[in-house]
Write a protein that binds this DNA or RNA. Structure first.
Lengths: 153, 153
DNA sequence: TTATATGCAAACGCTTTGCATCACG
DNA sequence: CGTGATGCAAAGCGTTTGCATATAA
């Protein structure tokens, strides 16, 4: 009952991302389509620098600022989420669902899977009960090796 | 079974932090004692800028670099932990225990409590089972309002 | 005495902003 | 057409580093 999808990207053109932007009332530009494609072309967590490098490699000429701005939009829409790696760096993952969920990221290849809530709501309830705090948000991020990286070493 | 301590700081001089540094074989300097006192004087999560401001206010003259370096040491020893706030900023919390635990931070006053593992190991096991990943570290951070901030608004 | 620790300032790397230009709707 | 989007370069900020000096052990 845990994994919400298989790790394989089903939307390599970024149509879901484009649809998200569009239905939120944002203008659909060639640049945004390009950024969506860059994100969709990535398998797993990525950093802004990755997108910028990909953009250059593919001669898409997307400006750094635009990458940040588009990522900010998508994050706001829940189509993408920002993670904090154990190292302290920021990275992003495309989300399969807009519902509340968490991420499990491979520390070797960055491949990521969405996880359902699992038992977190019970944990949150217990934390509230024992501390008297009222929890209004929580972050859970798991890191480890994906199946294929386990095999290859 | 959840809270590991009461929110009230019991070590306002920073003796525990000093002891941690000392027993790890680090030299005990006046500057480190000062940083320990600054941290101990804080109730809850704090940022490096807070310590720097406190240092100036108290005329301790601790250099910015030294604050970062000492925090790095203490983090390595598990006496302090670095958190990633929802906003993306980094902050630190003094840890009551060196054992694995998590934090619950008040988003209004920054007061923080340590939490035991709660049910996380079961969640991790379930995530591993359903995804095939091998999890080797996880981060769980809860944010909300502490009892007194709930009352005062 | 010698390895460590510190202060200072410069360097860094990531992210944001200001502003003129461009183009979707 | 007009508002929103983009590129570019500069500014911002938090964090790290190099190096000369000071100090614990």
């Amino acid at each position: 009952m845990a994994a919400m999808h298989t790790p394989q990207p089903a939307d390599s053109g970024g149509t879901e991302l484009i649809a998200a932007l569009e239905s939120a009332g944002h203008r659909m530009t060639a640049t945004r389509r390009a950024v969506a494609a860059l994100i969709a072309g990535r398998d797993g967590a990525f950093e802004t620098a990755d997108l910028l490098a990909d953009s250059r490699r593919r001669h898409l000429g997307v400006a750094r600022a635009t990458i940040f701005r588009t990522l900010e939009l998508l994050t706001g829409l829940g189509a993408v989420e920002r993670l904090d790696l154990p190292s302290g760096e920021h990275s992003y993952v495309r989300c399969e669902s807009t519902r509340h969920h968490h991420h499990l990221v491979c520390t070797r290849c960055q491949r990521a899977v969405d996880l359902e809530d699992l038992g977190m709501s019970a944990i949150v309830a217990e934390a509230e009960r024992s501390t008297g705090y009222k929890v209004d948000r929580h972050r859970v991020e798991l890191f480890g090796l994906c199946p294929s990286c386990q095999r290859s070493r």
